[in-house]
Structures are given as structure tokens and as C-alpha cells.
Design a protein around this nucleic acid. Structure first.
Lengths: 130, 130
DNA sequence: CGGCATCCACATGGATACTG
DNA sequence: CAGTATCCATGTGGATGCCG
């Protein structure tokens, strides 16, 4: 952890049960970021830069504290997100992407681009959030 | 369904609860392919072309009939996979990617490339050099 | 502010067995 | 061959409340 220095530790290994299969990197990567809110969190950090807990919570409308906390913990374990305490009083934390996390941007943006191209807007949308 | 032709129906809509947010396409796309085996199935179909049920089951080592069946049904509903009965006796089915499914290839390959670049092999011993 | 504790509902996936 | 039908364990997320 705490690799703000620029050098990164080895990340998750290929699981043994699919090693050798050419789809193994696919499913392993999907497992890393495949939880419901992980891509969104990564996208927020890509777009907005380092953020505090409640900043993320506000950004990602509808996510609960527990789920955000769990997700961030999971992302931190996977060395995708870095957690840094930037102030003790008042207590402030800053989440940012590690080098590994940042390298996921092609996937995240590929998802976004696909969505923009292939998903249609809801018709009954009354614009509520700007 | 069953548009093997050159023109596709509108696919899933942007959900109302996140419409307007710039991360909304991200999470919506993630929801489409974010199940455990979806990326692998899509990858198999991209690499191997149209396949039968048991072909996929053999390819994707460890997946059970039920999960594969559920996944394919889900992918079919989402117009990512096309199911075609190619023979009644003996009963044979062929699964293939729709245009929408095929258009997901940048995401799938982005996942694979990331995995190839950032994941280490399980039996590789040159991992803990810090 | 930035969480964690708890409880609960539901979704997901695995194992096994069986069918047209 | 191409699935279904169960049953069950676990995962995941939501709601609420509390704490340092």
C-alpha cells in the first residue's frame, strides 16, 4: 500500500483455476472491477481527481455509506485506490487512484464510450440534476 | 430478438436514477456485462465465433449448466447474444454475438490487455522484488 | 466528517439430478 | 445435445443507527 512514490507492488495474480486459458485475464480483470460501483468510483476519481469520502458519496448518487466503504476497502486491497489521511482534526481522508488504478482508464472509458453510443436516453426523464 | 440482419433494435435505456450523470453510461454498461461470466462468454464468442451450448461449457472451464444457461438468457435479453436453433434432430443450438455484442469487443479486449499487462502468473516466482 | 455495526432482502452462483 | 429443476451457500447491497 501507500505507493504514492510511483513504484508499485505486484498486483493480483492470475487465479490458478483459469491460468493458461486465454480468457483468464478477461475474467480476472472483470473480477477486479466488476462490482456494481467499482467502475463508477474509478470514473469519479479519473474525472474529479482525489476526493474525500463524502465527496464521492455525493457524486455517486444513491450509494450508501456501507457500500461505498466496502467498495473503497476492496479497491484499496486491490491496489487500485489509495487512501490517505490528510488531516486529523478535522478528520479528512483523501482517496486517489494508484498507478494501477489510473491504468484502468482505457477500460472505464471504453465502457463509457460504449454506453454513450449504444444506450438511449430514457424518455420519461424530467431533468432533475444538473 | 433474433436480429441477425444488419439493423438492430434500440438496446437498453439509460436508467432514470442516474440519467444526466456523466458516470451513468459507465455503470449502465458495467451492469450489462458485469456479471461474473459475461465477459468470458463474450470473449469466447469473439475468439471462437458461433458456438453451441456445450462448446461454451467446455471452453469456459468450471461453469455449470445452470449458470451458463442463465448467463446466456440474460445476454440474449440484452441483445448481446443471439440464439439460433440450427438443427431439430439432433437438437443443436448456436450462440453468436449480435452487432451490439460485437461492438463490445473494445471493452473486452481492454480488459484482456490490462490483465495481460498487470496480472502476474500464479506459478511465477519473480513476483516479490520490491 | 468519515466511517463502522447490525440486520435484512435479494441476487448470484454452485452442486446435483433429471428431461426432451 | 441442450438445457431445467431444486436446493443451498454465499455475496451484495440497502436501511438505519451510532461513534470518534
Amino acid at each position: 500500500m501507500s505507493d504514492t512514490g510511483g513504484h508499485e507492488d505486484p498486483i493480483e495474480k492470475i487465479p490458478v483455476w483459469c491460468a493458461g486459458e486465454d480468457w483468464c485475464p478477461v475474467t480476472t480483470t472483470a473480477t477486479l472491477i466488476g462490482k456494481k460501483w467499482h467502475p463508477v468510483i474509478i470514473h469519479r476519481l479519473l474525472e474529479h481527481g482525489p476526493s474525500g469520502f463524502n465527496e464521492l458519496k455525493e457524486d455517486v448518487d444513491g450509494i450508501s455509506s456501507k457500500v461505498l466503504s466496502d467498495s473503497l476497502e476492496d479497491l484499496e486491497e486491490k491496489q487500485i485506490v489509495n487512501r490517505e489521511i490528510i488531516s486529523e482534526r478535522p478528520f479528512r481522508v483523501q482517496y486517489s487512484l494508484t498507478h494501477h488504478g489510473d491504468s484502468l482508464s482505457p477500460i472505464i472509458y471504453a465502457m463509457r464510450d460504449w454506453g454513450l453510443e449504444h444506450l438511449s436516453e430514457p424518455e420519461d426523464q424530467t431533468d432533475s440534476i444538473v
